[in-house]
């Protein structure tokens, strides 16, 4: 029965109503994985370029590669959180402030109040997640632009840093310094605890986004919020959860940053939300939401990290060139996104 009523084969269906993508190039441009591949390719090209240029200065050491993870562990965690938000079609500007606040909060509790680190860590994560939850709650229930709500969060958390102390608090706690110095050997080189935590977060995010209902809802809402609502998906819960995840990741990034830099400072991580957003976008996630991969975010972070390393190896260049390179890349990737989305509309 079903065979007889089939009136159009897949091929017919496409040719009848929509011209099939003609060339291989056009098909490639329509592939959602393309931006991730481009970023991965860019990373590889930059890495090979660095190898040929700085070979004699030890660029080829595996540890140089692993250092990318160590030096950017906090950025990776923050960018993973930002990926959730951007994927859902939102934006979170409070990331940097929340990172700064977490460094201050933990440094103050550990150093000034003498609380054990193991108690402070869950506390800091809880505060970060709660902050994200509140922002998500306001965004959803009062239907306010995420841009404005998280901008308020940005000012609020930065202000709270200064309420705790106007001065930087350096951390001399022995647990912190031993954790910071611990290295896990991988044979070829070693990773810090921070880098391992970041990779675990990345893996967890990948699993959540692709293998849980919550993750798929994030994609659906980013794809078309109105449709998601009419399909009966819990819009509010998902949105609030997304900002909670981002808040949690920011707090965790703050802890890793504190571990990396071993102090709390009210001016830590100013503007890091923009680095995180840049990494997400360079990693191929559409700013309008619904399309992208958290793996792309990893490559985005690695590309940003590699720019920094290359500039260090170059030696003579000012570190501001990092910003310039980031700006150029960001611009290029947004143009690629634009080309992809306009193709889809035609």
């Amino acid at each position: 029965m079903s065979a007889t009523t089939k009136t159009r084969t897949a091929a017919e269906g496409r040719t009848a109503s929509k011209p099939a993508p003609a060339s291989a190039a056009a098909r490639l441009l329509g592939d959602r994985r393309l931006p991730v591949l481009v970023t991965a390719g860019l990373f590889l090209a930059m890495y090979i370029g660095g190898l040929s240029r700085y070979q004699n200065y030890g660029f080829g050491e595996p540890q140089v590669f692993l250092n990318l993870f160590i030096d950017n562990s906090y950025l990776l965690v923050a960018a993973v959180g930002a990926t959730f938000v951007i994927m859902s079609g939102g934006i979170d500007l409070s990331v940097g402030s929340l990172i700064g606040f977490t460094t201050m909060f933990t440094a103050w509790l550990v150093e000034r109040q003498g609380l054990p680190l193991l108690l402070v860590i869950p506390l800091a994560l809880g505060v970060g997640a709660f902050g994200g939850f509140l922002m998500g709650y306001v965004i959803h229930n009062f239907e306010i632009q995420p841009f404005i709500v998280t901008l308020a969060g940005l000012f609020l958390f930065r202000g709270l840093c200064l309420v705790i102390s106007k001065e930087s608090i350096s951390i001399s706690d022995s647990t912190v310094s031993s954790m910071a110095q611990t290295r896990v050997s991988l044979g070829l080189g070693e990773l810090s605890i921070g880098a391992i935590v970041a990779l675990v977060v990345l893996a967890a995010a990948f699993y959540i986004l692709h293998y849980t209902r919550f993750g798929r809802r994030v994609y659906a809402i980013g794809g078309n919020e109105q449709s998601a609502l009419l399909m009966g998906l819990p819009l509010g819960g998902t949105k609030i959860a997304v900002y909670t995840v981002s808040g949690f990741c920011s707090a965790l990034a703050g802890l890793l940053f504190m571990l990396y830099i071993q102090s709390g400072d009210p001016l830590h991580a100013v503007g890091m939300e923009l680095d995180a957003i840049a990494a997400v976008v360079i990693g191929g996630t559409l700013l309008t939401g619904g399309s992208g991969y958290v793996l792309g975010t990893l490559f985005g972070v690695l590309v940003l990290g590699l720019i920094k390393s290359i500039i260090q190896f170059e030696g003579t260049l000012s570190s501001w060139w990092t910003k310039i390179a980031t700006g150029v890349l960001l611009c290029a990737f947004i143009l690629i996104q634009r080309a992809m989305t306009t193709r889809k509309q035609t």
Partner: peptide, 30 residues
């Protein structure tokens, strides 16, 4: 209900559009 404007998510696969919101899961895994 199916509305005049298609209320599905164009960025997801056909299968996922059919199932989203009631995906079969085992221990939380789709």
């Amino acid at each position: 209900t199916v509305y005049q404007e298609v209320n599905l998510c164009p960025n997801l696969s056909v299968a996922e559009n059919i199932f989203i919101g009631r995906e079969p899961t085992r221990a939380g895994r789709i």
